[in-house]
Write a protein that binds this DNA or RNA. Sequence first.
DNA 1: AATGAGTACAACCGCAAACAT
DNA 2: AATGTTTGCGGTTGTACTCAT
Length: 255
Amino acid sequence: MGRAPCSSMVGLERGPWTAEEDALLINYIQQHGEGNWSKVSEKAASGGLLRCGKSCRLRWMNYLRPGIKRGNFSPEEDDLIIRLHKLLGNRWSLIAKRLQGRTDNEIKNYWNTHLGKRLLLQKTSKTDHTKPSTGSKNKEKQQQHTETNGDNANTYLQKTTRVFPFLLPGSSANDDTKALNSLTPLWSDHAVGGEEEQILLYENGGDLDDLLFTEEYHHNIKFDQVYMEYQELLMSSENQVRTQANYSSFNPFLT
DNA sequence: AATGAGTACAACCGCAAACAT
DNA sequence: AATGTTTGCGGTTGTACTCAT
């Protein structure tokens, strides 16, 4: 198919956002709401915001959106990121969902600049007491990538795909999604609130992520528990997939 | 003070799934 | 069902900043 990158569209700005542009975007979203990003660039242009929809979305999601936590990561967050990364690989959006107020982009950057490097150093110091090589930046990056991603048997490495919500039974979904839908009872066992509350949520049509990411959930569930739940989910997913030949293309631990 | 290397992070890009027609 | 468009994702790049020399 192929589309020209939005930055090449005539008359649109690129590069760092100015405070004025931020204000224009916030103002626009306050008036019209989130979403429909392709329309944003059309409609907001009249107000002086010359950015493509894609750029607007990114700016909003990663920087302007209310509730975004900025600043240093806590040791607990570090720990959770490391463990979730071990489980999920570079699925930053999924990891970000477990860290309230953090964006996938922020976590990805943090991993690439801090955590990944730290793990590499730890690993190196365990196996080799000499200092890591001080080669070129690219070489270091490459090494870091393979060390932290490549040889981890438990890491679910998949190509870039959109992360689906865990849809509820009865909703339309493809086969893979349906396979995971059957996991919801496991999750509901751990979810906050009584059975009645959960049933209510189900009946109201909220998906499982909605259930799990309520504010209450985050206040009550410790990082460790979140990690354990994810691990259980993935283990369960593996078993589920093995029993269903139709889903042979989806096996997190065999890819 | 100058400058080059390293670091941090915002922003861009291309791809693929989801959605609309 | 086929085709086009939009959205969301992970990988990568550009650049401002920091620090050592």
